[in-house]
Amino acid sequence: MTWRALLVRVVAALAITLCLALIGLPVLALLLRVPAGTLLARLADPLVLSAVRLSLVTSVAAAALIVVLGTPVAWLLATREFHGKRILEAVIDLPMVLPPTAAGVGLLLAFGRAGLAGRALASFGISLPFSTAAVVMAEAFVALPFFVGAAAAGFREVEPRYLDAAATLRASPGTTFFRVMLPLALPSVLAGATMSWARALGEFGATITFAGNLPGVTQTMPLAVYIALETDLEAAVALSVLLVLLSLTVLVAVRALPLGPAALRHARRDPR
């Protein structure tokens, strides 16, 4: 082995070790802190239960909203060229880099009672801040790019000749999308949906800023962890462990999911 190849290996090994230590150690520390019995007892606490329920409901709702709104956007970005496409892509990606608290302030200034769109909503008697709907909006805001990015990548990899074949068979654009494109891109679409759900589940900054913190209404698990930290470290750790286990289970499950023929036919475009 040349010294260069050796160096690459050493550096790679070091990087992997450090990455694992960075992410794995905190997770391990959380898991080791609370015995399983204590954990279960903690989770029976009504405040904890209501936070868990609220988190599940809002994160699933946010992911559903993202899939419904994000799929057409992803399809557009993957298949069409148009003026302002780069700008649209940048705007969609923005929540990834924006500090969530800033996102929360932005949501307040837009959809708050005195906000840009909020004033119009108020005339219909709709008030979003401090509501469960606001939690879903905050979560959808920060999690949207995770879905659009993955889904667009999936759509982009579908071989155009399959779509052309569908068109020659006189399939309507809708049929082509739902019967050809979506099944072929399904692994990416599902991965994107899962990532966005996981991001929504962990959302904190935008939620506490836009939706506030009220048990049973807007206090999701991350908020409950933050507040519990200050009075009851054990409860905070128990909630954190639950968040970790929940997210990990889903992330692993999605990777193991047999996606059937769709995954096998997931054809890559020839490199040019």
């Binding site: 307040l108 200034l109 708050g112 005195a114 801040p129 401090f130 506490i208 800023t209 939706a211 506030g212 913190n213 009220l214 048990p215 209404v217 807007t218 933050y226 507040i227």
Partner: peptide, 16 residues
């Protein structure tokens, strides 16, 4: 409607 995590967050919500 909300239990904020510090006093400045209370002020911000009223200020807005």
């Amino acid at each position: 409607v909300s239990e904020e995590e510090n006093v400045k967050a209370v002020v911000a919500k009223v200020q807005l």
